[in-house]
Simulated scan of single mutants.
Amino acid sequence: MDITSNNKGVFVISLDFELLWGVWDVTTKEKYGQHILGVKQVIPGLIDLFKRYDFKATFATVGFLFAKNREELMASLPAVKPAYSNSNYNVYEKELPLVGRDETDDAYHYGYSLFRQLLDTQHEIGTHTFCHYYCLEEGQSAEEFEADVRAAKKIALDNNIQLYSIVFPRNQVNEDYLPVLQDNGIPVYRGNPTSWIYKPRKFAAELPFIRLCRLLDTYLPVSGYNTHIIAKEEGLPVNVPASRFLKPYNKSLAWLEKLKLKRIMNEMTRAAQKNELYHLWWHPHNFGVNIAENMNNLTIILDHYKQLQQKYGFVNLTMKEAAGL
């Protein structure tokens, strides 16, 4: 069943709000710490910029970030934890023991003050799972995923938040786990673009050639136009699929910025003309350095959205709203 909003194009932005929990296993504080610390400027900057454009987004938040301090965090852990075959993915064994007392002591792992700022806005707060759970890695199970989802829901409810939307970490959408979401009251998820280069994969399967194809797709229509129809499948959560990752500003690739933005705006225009969905996403820490340049790029995108709104009736919705909830 097609549930695209009122026969109008829909523009959704979702952000994977995770701080160091999203990258601890692939980088270090020394290499990437400034990106993480920069999120303290990025979140209020995004709130202000979105407010100027009367724009609402979905902030898919790692459950750990709902905790004010270590005591609260430890008390919220699920009894059943992911048993990855590769222990290097196990956040409970590898990273959790390194966590400080609270946000003042450890701004890499705690973000309660940032989360609180979002509560006073029109944005949706969704989940990025409780522990940044990897749904396609070997060793973990549906039972462990369900325990994670329940922990995410509980700590959200403790903060008076009802979760509706989920973003799978590393975009590891596991279709076998969709009934788990439905059974636990998470009726919306962000799926992947349809092109083979965006197919959900284990982390080890992200080969250099695939990464190169995705990089080229940032600037050239390698995968075509990633606009979608939002459809409901009986008994399963609604897929509000991603269209494009907003690649952050990179000084060495600055000469390609106009091409990157043109690619995005062309897709937005197509979605507006064809009454389809365009779903842009990134992580707040992607904007954590080169903040001015990244915010300027987002401003250009939002200006284009306003033009499409006036010309075609292009509407902005959260993931929950785009799913018809």
Rank of each mutant, 00 (worst) to 15 (best):
D102T: 00
Y110G: 01
A107T: 12
A67S: 14
P82I: 03
P82F: 00
V80A: 08
D102Y: 00
L77W: 09
K56Y: 02
S113H: 04
S113L: 06
K68N: 12
F64N: 02
Y84Q: 08
L65E: 05
M74V: 14
Q34H: 11
T28C: 15
L118N: 01
L19D: 12
D54L: 07
D102I: 00
V39A: 03
T58I: 06
W24S: 07
F64M: 06
N86H: 02
G22N: 15
A79S: 13
L96A: 01
K81W: 03
Q34M: 11
Y53W: 12
L65M: 10
I36V: 14
T58R: 04
D54E: 08
L98A: 04
L118E: 02
D54C: 07
R116M: 04
F66G: 03
Y32K: 09
N86M: 03
L37K: 05
D105H: 13
N90R: 01
E95F: 07
D48W: 14
G100I: 00
I47M: 13
K68Y: 10
F64I: 08
K40Q: 13
E30C: 11
F55T: 09
A79Y: 11
E71N: 15
H35G: 04
L73R: 11
L77F: 12
D120P: 06
R52H: 12
Y108V: 05
T61R: 01
P82V: 03
I47K: 10
G33F: 03
Y108H: 04
L46A: 08
Q122M: 10
P78A: 05
A79C: 10
Y84G: 08
V99K: 00
E95K: 03
P78S: 09
E30N: 13
S76T: 11
P78L: 07
A67N: 08
V62F: 03
L49D: 14
K94N: 09
